[in-house]
Design a binder for these strands. Structure first.
Lengths: 100, 100
DNA sequence: TAAAAACATATGTATATTCTAATAAATTAA
DNA sequence: TTAATTTATTAGAATATACATATGTTTTTA
């Protein structure tokens, strides 16, 4: 409980809080949940989300820049997938805790 | 994967995202972590956080209104504690996932 | 009762977030 | 090459968030 440990806990809180901020938008969290089930195109994600295409693209780009997801082009469509291995673990934990 | 299930997943995402939003501020998350270790006064939390008192009070009030924490008065100080049983489970999960 | 201590609340300001609408870029199909 | 398809980007407006500062409230102490 010295200054060093408290600081390190604060740092971890800052890191996790930053991730939570990204996951704090319902559609972004939903997108991640879908991607946890497997790779998906923007169009499919858009259909699943029901939000306008630019909004989806903006959410995806944000999560991509943060390294949570990655993309590859196939023809003229983009396929997104989970890139951060901690995301599926986090989603699974949330499903366990909030299954009620 | 019918409309009903997708909707229910969206609802759960909205609920969890809303919680994440509250936890997306480093100081709020840190406050919750401290409270997971036991009841604490505003003054102690303020010392631990290093933020101005009104800021701490505002964070605490927000989490109180959302039912995450509760408070009781002892003399002229307020003692806060975790009120939502899902919070400790969530914090523990995060510690597991982000222990590296 | 008056002052002090601990906490809560109100207000204004700066910044961040989210969305819409329009447009650009990349690829494929005609 | 032109048109269509899919995705990305940009700009601006509306809203939300976070903080500093000042003040209010409750309880204890002098």
């Amino acid at each position: 409980m010295n200054g060093k440990k408290a600081l390190s806990e604060k740092r971890r809180c800052a890191r996790v809080a930053s991730l939570f901020k990204t996951l704090s938008h319902p559609q972004r969290l939903y997108l991640l949940c879908r991607l946890c089930d497997g790779e998906s195109t923007v169009q499919d994600l858009q259909t699943a989300c029901g939000a306008p295409q630019p909004v989806i693209s903006q959410h995806l780009m944000r999560m991509r820049l943060e390294g949570l997801i990655a993309a590859r082009r196939v023809g003229n469509s983009m396929h997104y997938r989970i890139a951060d291995p901690q995301i599926p673990a986090l989603i699974r934990s949330m499903e366990k805790i909030f299954s009620a």
